[in-house]
Amino acid sequence: MGRLRGRNIALTGGTGALGRVVAKRLTDEGAKVHIPAIESEVDKTALGLGEAVSITTGIDLSDEQAVKEFYAKLPPLWASIHIAGGFAFAPISETDAATLRQQFEMNAVSAYLCCKEAAANMKAGKAGGRLVNVSARPALEPRVGANITAYTMAKAGIAALTTALAEELKDERIAVNAVAPSIIDTPANREAMSGADFSTWVTPGAIAELMLSLCDPDAASVSGAVVPIYGWV
Protein backbone atom coordinates (compact mmCIF):
# COMPACT_ATOMS: atom_id res chain seq x y z
CA MET A 1 0.00 0.00 0.00
CA GLY A 2 1.92 3.00 -1.28
CA ARG A 3 5.46 4.30 -1.14
CA LEU A 4 4.87 6.01 2.22
CA ARG A 5 3.28 3.07 3.97
CA GLY A 6 3.49 3.36 7.75
CA ARG A 7 5.48 6.60 7.66
CA ASN A 8 4.56 9.56 9.86
CA ILE A 9 4.36 12.97 8.23
CA ALA A 10 3.63 16.35 9.83
CA LEU A 11 1.62 18.72 7.64
CA THR A 12 1.03 22.36 8.54
CA GLY A 13 -1.82 24.15 6.83
CA GLY A 14 -3.47 20.77 6.42
CA THR A 15 -7.01 22.06 6.96
CA GLY A 16 -6.79 24.54 4.06
CA ALA A 17 -7.69 24.08 0.40
CA LEU A 18 -4.21 22.95 -0.65
CA GLY A 19 -3.46 21.13 2.59
CA ARG A 20 -6.50 18.88 2.35
CA VAL A 21 -5.48 17.72 -1.11
CA VAL A 22 -1.94 17.05 0.08
CA ALA A 23 -3.21 15.17 3.14
CA LYS A 24 -5.35 12.92 0.97
CA ARG A 25 -2.49 12.09 -1.38
CA LEU A 26 -0.20 11.31 1.54
CA THR A 27 -2.74 8.97 3.12
CA ASP A 28 -3.45 7.39 -0.29
CA GLU A 29 0.23 6.41 -0.27
CA GLY A 30 -0.07 4.90 3.21
CA ALA A 31 1.23 7.75 5.38
CA LYS A 32 -0.07 8.77 8.77
CA VAL A 33 -0.55 12.54 8.74
CA HIS A 34 -0.30 14.83 11.77
CA ILE A 35 -1.77 18.32 11.37
CA PRO A 36 -1.34 21.29 13.74
CA ALA A 37 -4.30 23.66 13.35
CA ILE A 38 -4.69 27.16 14.71
CA GLU A 39 -8.45 26.67 14.98
CA SER A 40 -9.86 25.69 18.36
CA GLU A 41 -12.12 23.06 16.78
CA VAL A 42 -11.87 21.14 13.49
CA ASP A 43 -14.42 18.78 11.96
CA LYS A 44 -12.33 16.20 10.11
CA THR A 45 -15.35 14.63 8.43
CA ALA A 46 -16.55 17.95 7.04
CA LEU A 47 -13.05 18.59 5.64
CA GLY A 48 -12.90 15.15 4.06
CA LEU A 49 -9.93 14.03 6.18
CA GLY A 50 -9.81 10.34 6.97
CA GLU A 51 -8.84 8.17 9.91
CA ALA A 52 -5.14 8.26 9.00
CA VAL A 53 -5.12 11.99 9.78
CA SER A 54 -4.80 13.35 13.32
CA ILE A 55 -5.32 17.03 14.15
CA THR A 56 -4.01 18.99 17.12
CA THR A 57 -5.96 22.23 17.52
CA GLY A 58 -5.00 25.60 18.98
CA ILE A 59 -1.42 25.61 17.62
CA ASP A 60 0.07 28.99 16.66
CA LEU A 61 2.99 28.11 14.41
CA SER A 62 4.76 31.40 15.09
CA ASP A 63 4.87 30.50 18.80
CA GLU A 64 8.17 28.71 19.44
CA GLN A 65 7.01 26.84 22.52
CA ALA A 66 3.77 25.70 20.88
CA VAL A 67 5.67 24.33 17.87
CA LYS A 68 8.21 22.60 20.09
CA GLU A 69 5.48 20.92 22.14
CA PHE A 70 3.58 19.80 19.02
CA TYR A 71 6.60 18.10 17.44
CA ALA A 72 7.78 16.65 20.76
CA LYS A 73 4.57 14.63 21.00
CA LEU A 74 4.82 13.15 17.52
CA PRO A 75 6.16 9.70 16.72
CA PRO A 76 9.38 9.45 14.68
CA LEU A 77 8.80 11.45 11.51
CA TRP A 78 9.75 10.65 7.97
CA ALA A 79 8.70 14.06 6.60
CA SER A 80 7.37 17.45 7.57
CA ILE A 81 5.57 19.63 5.02
CA HIS A 82 5.00 23.31 5.78
CA ILE A 83 2.09 24.84 3.87
CA ALA A 84 0.78 27.21 6.54
CA GLY A 85 1.31 30.88 5.78
CA GLY A 86 -0.37 34.17 5.00
CA PHE A 87 -0.71 36.73 2.22
CA ALA A 88 -0.91 40.52 2.14
CA PHE A 89 -1.64 42.48 -1.04
CA ALA A 90 -0.68 46.14 -0.78
CA PRO A 91 1.94 48.54 -2.19
CA ILE A 92 4.75 49.54 0.16
CA SER A 93 3.10 52.92 0.76
CA GLU A 94 0.21 51.07 2.44
CA THR A 95 2.28 48.42 4.24
CA ASP A 96 3.39 49.27 7.75
CA ALA A 97 6.01 47.55 9.88
CA ALA A 98 3.34 45.56 11.70
CA THR A 99 2.17 44.00 8.43
CA LEU A 100 5.74 43.26 7.40
CA ARG A 101 6.41 41.53 10.71
CA GLN A 102 3.13 39.64 10.41
CA GLN A 103 4.13 38.30 6.99
CA PHE A 104 7.47 37.12 8.35
CA GLU A 105 5.83 35.52 11.39
CA MET A 106 3.17 33.72 9.36
CA ASN A 107 5.50 32.55 6.60
CA ALA A 108 9.24 32.53 7.32
CA VAL A 109 9.19 32.21 11.11
CA SER A 110 6.60 29.41 11.11
CA ALA A 111 8.55 27.48 8.46
CA TYR A 112 11.81 27.99 10.38
CA LEU A 113 10.38 26.75 13.68
CA CYS A 114 8.74 23.72 12.08
CA CYS A 115 11.96 22.82 10.23
CA LYS A 116 13.91 23.15 13.47
CA GLU A 117 11.66 20.86 15.51
CA ALA A 118 11.03 18.38 12.71
CA ALA A 119 14.77 18.08 12.13
CA ALA A 120 15.31 17.43 15.83
CA ASN A 121 12.73 14.66 15.68
CA MET A 122 14.38 13.12 12.61
CA LYS A 123 17.88 13.34 14.05
CA ALA A 124 16.71 11.43 17.11
CA GLY A 125 15.37 8.70 14.86
CA LYS A 126 18.62 8.52 12.86
CA ALA A 127 16.75 7.43 9.73
CA GLY A 128 16.99 10.60 7.67
CA GLY A 129 13.89 12.32 6.38
CA ARG A 130 12.34 15.00 4.21
CA LEU A 131 11.47 18.65 4.87
CA VAL A 132 9.28 20.44 2.32
CA ASN A 133 8.61 24.18 2.50
CA VAL A 134 6.38 26.46 0.45
CA SER A 135 7.99 29.52 -1.08
CA ALA A 136 6.38 31.40 -3.99
CA ARG A 137 7.08 32.63 -7.50
CA PRO A 138 7.90 36.21 -6.37
CA ALA A 139 10.72 34.80 -4.23
CA LEU A 140 12.39 33.50 -7.40
CA GLU A 141 11.25 36.35 -9.64
CA PRO A 142 11.11 39.42 -7.36
CA ARG A 143 9.77 41.74 -10.08
CA VAL A 144 6.56 39.71 -9.93
CA GLY A 145 6.38 40.79 -6.28
CA ALA A 146 5.48 44.40 -7.01
CA ASN A 147 2.67 45.52 -4.67
CA ILE A 148 3.23 42.48 -2.43
CA THR A 149 6.72 43.33 -1.19
CA ALA A 150 6.21 42.18 2.41
CA TYR A 151 4.95 38.79 1.24
CA THR A 152 7.76 38.58 -1.33
CA MET A 153 10.41 39.23 1.32
CA ALA A 154 8.94 36.58 3.61
CA LYS A 155 8.74 33.94 0.89
CA ALA A 156 12.29 34.78 -0.24
CA GLY A 157 13.33 34.05 3.32
CA ILE A 158 11.80 30.58 3.00
CA ALA A 159 13.74 29.96 -0.22
CA ALA A 160 16.99 30.96 1.51
CA LEU A 161 16.15 28.85 4.56
CA THR A 162 15.58 25.83 2.33
CA THR A 163 18.91 26.09 0.52
CA ALA A 164 20.96 26.81 3.64
CA LEU A 165 19.30 24.12 5.73
CA ALA A 166 19.78 21.49 3.03
CA GLU A 167 23.53 22.02 3.36
CA GLU A 168 23.35 22.01 7.15
CA LEU A 169 21.43 18.73 7.37
CA LYS A 170 23.05 16.76 4.56
CA ASP A 171 25.15 14.64 6.94
CA GLU A 172 21.93 13.64 8.70
CA ARG A 173 20.46 12.46 5.37
CA ILE A 174 17.60 14.92 5.77
CA ALA A 175 16.65 16.35 2.39
CA VAL A 176 15.27 19.90 2.43
CA ASN A 177 13.36 21.30 -0.54
CA ALA A 178 10.64 23.81 -1.34
CA VAL A 179 7.97 24.34 -3.94
CA ALA A 180 7.41 27.80 -5.40
CA PRO A 181 3.91 28.09 -6.85
CA SER A 182 2.34 30.98 -8.68
CA ILE A 183 -1.39 31.59 -8.21
CA ILE A 184 -3.05 28.46 -6.82
CA ASP A 185 -6.52 27.53 -8.05
CA THR A 186 -8.44 27.68 -4.77
CA PRO A 187 -11.98 28.93 -4.04
CA ALA A 188 -10.57 31.91 -2.12
CA ASN A 189 -8.34 32.96 -5.03
CA ARG A 190 -11.18 32.55 -7.52
CA GLU A 191 -13.35 34.81 -5.39
CA ALA A 192 -10.60 37.41 -5.01
CA MET A 193 -9.77 37.42 -8.76
CA SER A 194 -13.08 36.58 -10.35
CA GLY A 195 -12.14 37.94 -13.77
CA ALA A 196 -9.00 35.84 -14.18
CA ASP A 197 -8.49 32.84 -16.44
CA PHE A 198 -8.51 30.07 -13.84
CA SER A 199 -7.35 27.49 -16.38
CA THR A 200 -3.86 29.03 -16.31
CA TRP A 201 -3.42 28.65 -12.55
CA VAL A 202 -1.56 25.81 -10.88
CA THR A 203 -3.87 23.25 -9.27
CA PRO A 204 -3.62 21.94 -5.71
CA GLY A 205 -3.40 18.46 -7.19
CA ALA A 206 -0.28 19.33 -9.18
CA ILE A 207 1.39 20.81 -6.10
CA ALA A 208 0.42 17.77 -4.05
CA GLU A 209 2.06 15.45 -6.58
CA LEU A 210 5.25 17.51 -6.52
CA MET A 211 5.33 17.45 -2.71
CA LEU A 212 4.73 13.72 -2.75
CA SER A 213 7.69 13.22 -5.07
CA LEU A 214 9.92 15.26 -2.73
CA CYS A 215 8.86 13.02 0.17
CA ASP A 216 9.59 9.83 -1.73
CA PRO A 217 12.15 7.60 0.02
CA ASP A 218 13.92 7.28 -3.34
CA ALA A 219 14.35 11.06 -3.70
CA ALA A 220 17.39 11.31 -1.42
CA SER A 221 19.57 12.93 -4.09
CA VAL A 222 17.26 15.95 -4.35
CA SER A 223 18.00 18.53 -1.65
CA GLY A 224 18.32 22.30 -1.61
CA ALA A 225 15.93 22.78 -4.53
CA VAL A 226 13.28 25.49 -4.73
CA VAL A 227 11.08 24.07 -7.48
CA PRO A 228 8.96 26.42 -9.62
CA ILE A 229 5.40 25.25 -10.27
CA TYR A 230 3.64 28.03 -12.14
CA GLY A 231 0.86 26.44 -14.17
CA TRP A 232 0.48 28.46 -17.38
CA VAL A 233 0.62 31.98 -15.88
Rank of each mutant, 00 (worst) to 15 (best):
R3C: 07
L4I: 13
N8W: 08
I9V: 15
I9K: 01
G14Q: 02
G14T: 05
T15H: 03
T15R: 01
G16C: 09
A17C: 05
G19T: 07
G19A: 09
V21S: 00
A23E: 06
K24C: 10
L26I: 11
L26T: 10
L26M: 07
T27I: 11
D28M: 08
E29W: 04
E29F: 05
A31E: 06
K32C: 07
P36A: 09
A37H: 07
S40I: 05
V42K: 00
V42C: 03
K44E: 15
K44L: 12
T45Y: 02
V53M: 04
G58I: 05
Q65S: 11
Q65P: 00
V67A: 05
P76L: 06
I81N: 00
I81V: 15
A84Q: 02
G86S: 14
F87H: 04
F89L: 12
A90W: 10
T95Y: 12
D96A: 09
R101E: 12
E105I: 01
M106G: 02
N107Q: 04
A108G: 01
V109P: 00
S110A: 13
S110Q: 03
A111G: 02
C115R: 01
C115V: 04
K116T: 00
A118S: 04
A118N: 08
A119W: 01
A119D: 01
A120R: 12
A124M: 08
A124C: 04
A124R: 10
K126I: 01
K126A: 13
G129K: 05
N133E: 02
S135N: 01
S135K: 03
R137W: 12
L140N: 06
L140S: 06
E141H: 08
A146S: 02
N147R: 06
T149R: 01
A150E: 10
T152D: 08
A154P: 03
K155L: 11
A156I: 05
A160Q: 14
E167R: 15
N177W: 02
V179A: 13
D185P: 00
T186E: 14
P187F: 14
A188V: 14
N189H: 13
R190A: 08
M193C: 06
G195Y: 14
G195N: 15
A196P: 02
D197Y: 13
S199K: 12
T200I: 12
T200Y: 07
T203Y: 11
T203W: 09
C215F: 01
D216F: 11
A219W: 06
A220Q: 14
A220Y: 07
V226H: 06
V226P: 10
P228F: 12
I229N: 04
Y230R: 02
W232C: 07
